[in-house]
Design a protein around this nucleic acid. Sequence first.
DNA 1: GTGATTGCAAACCTTTTGCACGCCA
DNA 2: TGGCGTGCAAAAGGTTTGCAATCAC
Lengths: 148, 148
Amino acid sequence: MHNKSESGLQSFIERCRRYGLKLTPQRIALYTILDGVKTHPTAKEVYDEIVKEYPHISIDTVNRTLNTLAEYGFIDVVEGYGEPKRFDPDRESHHHAHCIICGTIIDFQNNRYDELEIPKEITRKFSVLHKRVVLNGICGDCDNPRKS
Amino acid sequence: MHNKSESGLQSFIERCRRYGLKLTPQRIALYTILDGVKTHPTAKEVYDEIVKEYPHISIDTVNRTLNTLAEYGFIDVVEGYGEPKRFDPDRESHHHAHCIICGTIIDFQNNRYDELEIPKEITRKFSVLHKRVVLNGICGDCDNPRKS
DNA sequence: GTGATTGCAAACCTTTTGCACGCCA
DNA sequence: TGGCGTGCAAAAGGTTTGCAATCAC
């Protein structure tokens, strides 16, 4: 599908130009880290990755940039249950299964879910921008009695 | 459906006994406030309500009790996007529409959503306890240009 | 009686904000 | 050059934790 390549970076650069966002090294670095990521990292996790290559960056910039990227639709903020905010660089339609024990989020695709109709009672009073099925339960690892 | 009555309180008391949870006045007060609530209050909002009738209670107790009630399945923690934790006393199956501007959550019922099948690829590695369709978009109030 | 629960205070953690400097366009 | 973006520090906000006193069972 999407490969971690210049094509991605190119379109990122173009979109930044279009939106009037300046192309700072920090933003490029952040984009590079996030491109292709299929997990749902917190700001801290992104920061820990990015300092390896860019030791001067601050956690504040990571926070601010993640918020900016989310605001402009480059990434999503994922639904959570009180733990630190998680971001999702994968903007293709997918659904989530949350483990209530360890907090892991499993992504999955499902055409039937994608095609769900929105009830008229909702469309009458609400403009839907995004739709997702969210499952909660216990993942294989946590279900396994071997692992405490 | 459910009415704010002794029957609710009775079953609350019975369940507490069954679980070995002590019936403190704070817990009763919290239960009474939450019974029948159809919104998704934060701990602070619950606290603000409860101090009116129970001026001595502390926000810590409200937080702890809400967590306990959630842990034992009396209430749910609802999905959010970084703002303070929200609780949902309504445990009947329903779905959520989140306004990305004001944060309001609109509840709605939908049989088709309730009956969604879980893909086998998920059930193989994940025990589903709860299922919800989450919509994100803009609510009527925020869509209205009159209101800023 | 005794163990769970409460209230208070402090700690903790994450996220936001103010501000001066520096860099991109 | 002008203004946005960054880094630092501080503030803010929410939630958790430790502990002694209290209360439910």
